[in-house]
Design a protein around this nucleic acid. Structure first.
Ligand SMILES: [Zn+2]
Ligand SMILES: [Zn+2]
Lengths: 670, 670
DNA sequence: TAATGGGTGCACT
DNA sequence: AAGTGCACCCATT
């Protein structure tokens, strides 16, 4: 089998092949290398590389948009050989630039710097770059970093956990997906929707479902936040490493981690954050839209601002706007809205931290907020208009000891959370999906500008204002600091359509709820912040960097770092074999295809499709000292299909269901 | 693809196949299942299974001694499909019986029970069964279990760590291999000895070495010890789960874990254990042989006993003795030598624990032992004969509060440690490798018999006595409790050839060193306790249990538990996908072939060769919303070679260097 | 503390 | 994106 160049492999003769190959290996007592079989089996006309069974581990990988197949062999001696089949690629594998987008004007290390309150801008746009968070408070305790980040990333639908930490470094990652997420119901749905799943007998391939316990999909999200302490600068640096996710982003107010986080907020007396998260919880539980977007605009009228529940005219959403957004996103946007800060009562000292320009340390209802449950707080004073202490709007209180003084309001820039577990949009409360503008409803005023100024070298965008119809449903803003809904406005925009602004003292919770419920989001709904380029997803990188096809010949490159842990035990460990240390060399990403993602409630729109396959083959044999069994030869003929256009359909699907509009991004800074 | 029964796979058409497959998936927006490709790709004449690129994970495995190839596909939806190619195996996959060995008379749950001091018997022989340790002290603290097990398994060359624990369970595993273990020197050696490694161009396969930092081989050893607290019996049960290893066993006295363990021994005042481990450390650092074997014998004269540095006549060592040992090993041997206990000063309470029958709480040199370093202790009184307080030989002290009262001396049964990092045996100090008998040199007298009696239903073995020439090298037993070298003798054997016995007061350290250095071990040297059957190595089991070849047809069986984590993050996690929950279903084991193992300083003799290969293929593709690239078709034709007799050479190699004699095992209990 | 299996946060090394 | 030891979990039966 496969001894002939006709490239025809007969599965029925597979065993014989393997036997031959192994016989050769066994004939040579010194044969320890994987290539020994190749040399010894050169008698015939083989159309496939042979792999000795004494290789403990091997992997074959197909690179995206290339014609290469990579075979990785890992030996107990830590030596790894890789075999790349296919033409030598011309594609630069180290490119971090986005496809179809001009190179962003970013730092030479391909990183951008964002203020924490602008994190959504970076998260939505700079998925191929390192996103530096600056400014960052001076944490005097490593344990203070996580709560600070949680304030930022919880509203983004990202629940972070510590992956690793020591005295000078904390690596955060997304919390692992809970197992049992794909219930039988989900599976059945997927099977029903996919006739191929149940195809029982296709070309001698029998399909059968094993009803086994659903195990968790693995902890494969590459998203990382790295906090490192700089001894020179005596401060912590926080960088978003892999701004992409293998899962939908969803805020889960029921998670234990969030409860702890919320409890800490109460313990710290961080009323501002408590209220924000109360709102977030309420809307999440009510399946109300929780989303906002940076709406970059090139009209030249505004600073780059953020909004909460921005509603744009539907006509403004288009696929091309997505492209525009992508192109715009790569440009560096520094410290925009860095003045939008939340003051908190505790945290690290801010000796070296810029003091907040605008904030109020609201003591009103503080005790209640600290004691009541989230929902209770949020729904206090049902049906009554919240008392809005106007005197507090401008009461700026500096809290220099607050670790979170520089926590820019994440609610202003985030809320990129798909609702309803990413099912097609379900928003009964929404009556008018168009012509609603919630611009800056929770934004704080950017009273102070950064030194470089929002109008100087930075992108300038503005919110497209829309009058917002609002009505119905009462009493959700009773205990809110409604001042926060009004006082933070973009100085360049008259986006004061909030009910609170028009009649703050008489605005009811229901008005605000309705106000916030209306959504005409641009790229918010069911959007996974994967941009169109996942080349920085390098999980397989080191594993696959071992093979090369040079001049039509296969080359095996020893690579000690190319490791695939196939046979491992449970424990807590991630798959270290798939960790990559260099983003430059690993343009591969394990992303489920849209179909599979849909099955797992993994909705994607406006993002890249990452179709991947992984074929692992292991051979094992038992040899007795006294009985030398005959050598067995086995062969595998694998066909790997690369498909690039399956994603299109799913994009359409999502768009049809969700009416998703990609980021409206006007770029006036070119 | 595979649409025809001709079973002919043309690698050149693989791409087309794959493209079809993927196209089908994309055509149906609801297609989420991997099997969709099979049904939709029936157009062509493909004889091989096609694998969609949108499959996130897949593995192909060849089973040992079978003609099957298994392909595993794991999807983000937690659905896994497996494809088994090859004739339906008649080999019972649930069999835990050893090949070429009669079924052991063991419990119906395929488990055996061993006393802790007999652990080596089980470890060497019962690798397919659960090995219950009984008796076990009544640990009143979960933290007491690990030190107790360390006493047993450190001498076996097994460094255990906790994989997982809770209030009622502690799972131990082998400590993960350190990275950077295989130096360039080692690699070069392996390459030099193996011409195939350097074969540059074989069948269009070019070999090239990447000089990268050697990274850790992964944490793949399946060996587990499970300690569970039985609520009903109010006691801890300890079971060895997977008595096999993916790595050589080596005692590393330099490990931090061991240092902690040793420190705890000193803190506990466990002089007995301290001395034992001092000896072990010394011999390890001196590259002296550290080994012992259970020598089961059917002569009917002796109980089954253990020995430290047993030396058998070279004539007694043969391959068939190995078979005999294997055959004997499967039989249940319960509570043998359970009276050989070490008293310690602390530990859990022993309310329900059998009290030690024989032990001495040696206070001599206690302070020194507790303060001195290991080597210092062991090398005190250079050149002087150790003072042997004969009055202490019979001073039996019961320490009912000692958690480790029931720790049978692991040195009696273990020391199955290859020396010199598994290089060919290096023992300059050894002058006579034959005719030396160290039977029970460290055994304690079995003054008390178990209720069932060693002569009743249990296997009876004895040490084959040999006169031991000894000479040279002084001063290594100065601070040792030499009584321990004399007082623990097999009651049925005149194995009192130790220099200490013949002239205890004048015995020099050099005599003892030479005494212990002589080795004619049976299966001790460079032996990995893999027996001839690794069917219980089920690490890939769940992963591979998804495919079946039935009546010449490929069957894909959905298996939600068959998971291969390919793209994962680092963190601490093991590879949960490779953990096996059932030994019955997984006859696969990732073992390096002897050649590869030799390259990695992984020597095996007298054990099964576990040749395994693992081929992992991943496809990734980047799809832009605006640009649908053409589909790419890639194919892999792999030949997996099963080699069964490469190990023979290495066995010979080891035997030539070490004169290894496999376990002399006379079975009189049939 | 029913028994038994596995996932994973996160600090230690 | 250190790797991993370990404990706190959860799941299934
Ligand atoms: Zn994520
Ligand atoms: Zn091990």
């Amino acid at each position: 089998m496969s001894r002939q160049n006709n490239n025809c492999i007969d599965p029925t003769t597979t065993d014989a092949m393997l036997e031959e190959t192994s016989s050769v290996s066994s004939a040579s007592s010194t044969t320890t290398s994987p290539s020994s079989s190749s040399s010894s089996t050169s008698v015939g006309n083989h159309c496939s590389p042979s792999i000795l069974k004494n290789h403990p581990d091997a992997s074959a990988t197909a690179a995206p948009n290339t014609d290469k197949i990579q075979l990785n062999l890992m030996f107990p001696s830590n030596q790894t050989y890789s075999l790349v089949m296919g033409p030598e690629t011309k594609q630069p594998r180290t490119s971090k630039q986005k496809q179809n987008a001009p190179p962003p004007a970013q730092t030479e290390d391909n990183s951008v710097t964002f203020a924490p309150d602008n994190i959504q801008i970076a998260l939505n746009q700079d998925q191929n770059t390192l996103i530096h968070l600056d400014p960052v408070p001076n944490f005097n305790d490593k344990a203070d970093i996580k709560p600070w980040l949680q304030k930022i990333f919880y509203p983004q639908g990202i629940e972070i956990v510590i992956e690793r930490s020591d005295n000078t470094k904390v690596i955060f990652k997304c919390k692992a997906a809970k197992k049992g997420r794909s219930s039988n119901k989900d599976k059945n749905q997927a099977s029903a929707s996919d006739p191929t799943v149940t195809t029982p007998n296709v070309n001698h391939v029998l399909l059968k479902k094993k009803k086994k316990r659903s195990v968790s999909r693995f902890n494969i999200c590459p998203f990382r936040i790295r906090a490192t302490y700089s001894l020179k600068r005596k401060k912590w640096n926080i960088v978003v490493i892999n701004n992409t996710h293998s899962h939908p982003l969803k805020f889960n107010p029921d998670s234990e981690e969030y409860k702890k986080f919320k409890l800490k907020l109460r313990e710290d007396g961080d009323l501002e954050a408590i209220k924000k998260f109360d709102e977030l919880e309420y809307k999440t539980r009510k399946n109300l839209p929780i989303q906002s977007s940076m709406i970059p605009c090139d009209c030249g009228l505004t600073n780059e601002i953020q909004s909460f529940n921005i509603v744009l005219p539907s006509g403004r959403t288009a696929a091309n706007s997505n492209d525009t957004a992508t192109a715009t996103s790569s440009r560096p946007i520094k410290k925009l809205l860095s003045a939008n800060l939340i003051s908190t009562s505790n945290g690290g000292n801010n000796n070296n931290v810029q003091k907040p320009r605008t904030r109020v340390n609201d003591k009103r209802n503080k005790e209640n907020l600290l004691k009541k449950t989230t929902t209770t707080n949020f729904l206090t004073n049902n049906g009554t208009a919240p008392a809005i202490p106007t005197n507090r709007v401008n009461s700026l209180v500096e809290n220099s000891n607050s670790m979170t003084d520089f926590l820019d309001d994440p609610f202003n820039s985030s809320m990129n959370i798909p609702m309803n577990d990413f099912a097609p949009f379900n928003l009964e409360a929404v009556t008018n999906l168009n012509e609603i503008d919630f611009t800056d409803i929770f934004n704080k005023p950017t009273t102070l500008q950064q030194d470089d100024g929002p109008f100087s070298t930075l992108n300038e965008m503005h919110i497209h204002d829309q009058q917002t119809p609002y009505a119905a449903d009462m009493s959700i803003f009773s205990s809110l600091d409604t001042a926060s809904l009004t006082r933070f406005q973009s100085p360049m925009h008259d986006v004061n359509d909030s009910p609170l602004l028009r009649n703050p003292s008489n605005t009811t919770n229901s008005e605000m709820l309705d106000y916030m419920s209306n959504q005409h989001t641009t790229q918010e709904n069911n959007v996974i912040p994967n941009n169109g380029n996942n080349n920085n997803n390098t999980t397989l990188a080191n594993e696959l960097d071992v093979f090369k096809m040079v001049d039509g010949e296969l080359k095996i490159i020893e690579d000690d770092n190319a490791l695939l842990k196939i046979n491992s035990t449970t424990g807590r460990h991630d798959n270290p074999e798939m960790t990559n240390t260099s983003n430059e060399h690993n343009p591969y990403m394990f992303h489920a295809s849209p179909a599979v993602q849909a099955e797992g409630q993994f909705w994607q729109n406006n993002i890249t499709n990452n179709d991947s396959i992984n074929i692992t083959s292991s051979m094992n044999q038992i040899t007795d000292n006294t009985t030398n069994t005959n050598s067995n030869i086995q062969s595998i003929n694998m066909q790997l299909i690369e498909l690039n256009n399956t994603s299109k359909k799913y994009d359409d699907h999502n768009n049809n269901n969700n009416n998703n509009i990609n980021s409206h991004n006007h770029n006036n800074s070119n």
